[in-house]
Amino acid sequence: MDDIYQEFIIELYKNPMNFGRMAKPDYHAEVHNSTCGDRIELSLKMKSGIIVDVKFAGSGCAISQASSSLFTEYLKGKTLDQLKKIDKQEVLALLKIDLSKNPSRMKCALLPLDALKKSIK
């Protein structure tokens, strides 16, 4: 049972990075995954055209939480144009696990990307 549940995933689930909310974010969105009840809230802070701070909050499974941790870290230092170009493959590459045969888990992994897209829409 450890194909997906590698140690670093569990570790990020227990101790997430960039977890929390921020006062007056420049971009903000909340998304839900209706199949599992996961909820992620993403907040972004921008300064001089680049992302200087990212936070996520909410509850979810280990995959969505780990993905959100890695994803928020990944967003820092990027411009709005760069954010707009981020695609699925980049998010999955951050996770380093193969979800190609788990379409339902794929949704969990991509939840923070959904939140990003919604926030900058």
Binding site: Y5, C36, G60, C61
Partner: peptide
């Protein structure tokens, strides 16, 4: 999370 339980 229940999703992790079911997946494992």
């Amino acid at each position: 999370h229940s999703h992790d339980v079911a997946a494992m």
